[in-house]
Simulated assay, not measured.
Amino acid sequence: MPHALHPGGRLAGVLYLIVVVTGIFCLAYVPAQLAGADAGAMLDNVVARQALFKQGVAAFVVEQVAYLLLALVLYRSFQDVSRSAATLMLAFVAMAVPLALAALSHRLQALSLLTDADSAQLLSPEQRQQLAHAALKAYRGGMQLVRVFWGLWLLPLGWLVLRSRRLPRLLGALLVLGGLGYVLDVLAELLVPGYADWWISAHLTLPASVGEIGTCLWLLLFGLRAARPAASRSLAQ
């Protein structure tokens, strides 16, 4: 008999899709559009394209809310497999979200320094640019810490997928590898000189990207298998 579907599977897929789409927009598309040849040019782009910058901030907030809701749905879906692992997964997300939103405040601070009329009256253009640049560096430093938790939450999630088989085991393996990749990537950035120039630096988090997008699509298309009743498992043995 085909497996029954868990009622939270499709909801998790929708929430994961929101996380993926908003994440690509605010973490990849917007920074690429605002990038410049140097820090000064990038700050000029922020001023010239304020609307896009603000859209990136709004998308980031939506992503974090969806991320937390996703973790809650996945916790309810997997707690019967291992409550401790599901709790650990949720705890890592619960730590990541406030850290990410705190880091985001530095982006808002940078925009305010560059565009606010009061800042223009109190500070010279050079001072405003220096402080805005420092605020964006603080944002990047905060996000480096957040990325550790983006990796850590994938470890128990991948383990739960592997143990429960409610999703393909390949996805579980990719999630575990991706989680390790995230953590190693951050540690290498902090501890290994010249790591950004290494070939592997651009690929260490690739399993996470493939695993998360694959999990999102599988949940949307096929849902999440529900646990079989004990009687059914006994008959199948």
Rank of each mutant, 00 (worst) to 15 (best):
P2T: 09
F25T: 03
L27Q: 14
Y29D: 06
V30C: 03
V30Y: 05
L34S: 03
M42K: 14
A51D: 15
K54V: 13
K54N: 11
A58F: 13
F60S: 12
V65D: 07
A66K: 04
A66V: 02
L68R: 07
L70E: 00
A71L: 01
V73T: 12
Y75S: 08
Y75R: 11
S82C: 09
T87A: 13
L90E: 07
V93Y: 02
A96D: 10
A100P: 07
A100R: 06
L104D: 02
S105K: 09
Q109S: 11
L111W: 11
S112T: 15
S112R: 13
L114F: 10
E126T: 14
E126N: 10
R128Y: 03
K137G: 08
R140C: 07
R140M: 13
G141D: 15
G141L: 10
Q144M: 11
V148I: 09
W150P: 05
W153L: 07
L154S: 00
W159A: 08
L162T: 08
S164V: 02
G172V: 08
L175I: 05
L177A: 15
G178E: 00
L180P: 05
V183E: 01
A188C: 06
L190R: 09
G194A: 01
A208Q: 06
G214P: 10
C216K: 00
L217M: 11
L219M: 08
L219Y: 06
L221Y: 02
L221M: 14
A227Q: 15
R228Q: 15
